[in-house]
Amino acid sequence: METWRKRRTLFLALLAPGTLWLVVFFTLPLVLIALYSVSEQGDAGETILTLTFENYGRAFDWVTLGILWKSFWIASAVTAACLVMGFPLALGIAFAPRPWKTPLLALVALPFWTNLLIRTYAWIAVLRTKGHLNNALEWTHAKGQAAFAALGWPDALGPFVPLELLYNDWAVIIALVHIHLPFMVLPLYAVLEKLDRAHLEASLDLGAGHGRTFRSVIVPLSMPGLATGTVLVFILALGNFVAADLLGGSDSMMIGNLIAQQFGASSDWPYGSALSLLLLYATFLFLWLRALGHRRRGEWAPA
């Protein structure tokens, strides 16, 4: 750092592009949004800055609160599912033989190479009434039917009824888990990979089985990655509106959809801005709670 202080000009020159980028594309829009959120729409649809808090007030009606609540529970379910599936995956990759690690990691990151929209659309092909999943079920059903018929028990299973898998919350959750799993696996892998194997051996050596070693040593020591993955997935899932749009039912609107609607179909920018900022505050609250929890866990600061 000393040398940076001496070469002020160089330091500032290097800092400038990033700063400029953030100011133009992040700070300014945020200020605009903040201004919009305290504005009103005139009769001709023009925006008038009136410094009103009415837009925020509108967010606290039952319908919006319901959408917010639903968004939180869907994001929570997605985070939980990513955690349950991502932890063993990250653990498996971190402990895989060295030559396997890079290919396995590449597989985890592979979905990033496909457009988000396409990944979401793909689930329609899988889940719809005549989709791949139902086709597979129908095939199994037919085979079963034939097997029972051969045993002299025709039509034992009844007619095949396709499952209604699409256009509900579960479809949204499945797609969101698929999209966000890498965001859980990668930070977890990063900490598990660096985990000192001697700690695990010490635990075994002291008589702890694999279960206790996992609970008492692996999980606490991977807290930094666990927290990062959880926050990333939760925030990303909370803000996502494509999945709910394409795969959700008529009641599957999430907060992201509501905001998108204000900037699109409803063209109520002030209300949309207020909702955006509320979501931002909620996210900050979440991060702040996480930081608090971190501090309480003790002086041990994960590097």
Partner: peptide
């Protein structure tokens, strides 16, 4: 016999104390 069932204990070179 796995490590956790052996009547021996080890002092690791790096000590391997649990930091948490």
């Amino acid at each position: 016999v796995p490590p956790n069932r052996r009547p021996v204990n080890m002092v690791f070179q790096s000590y391997a104390l649990f930091p948490h």
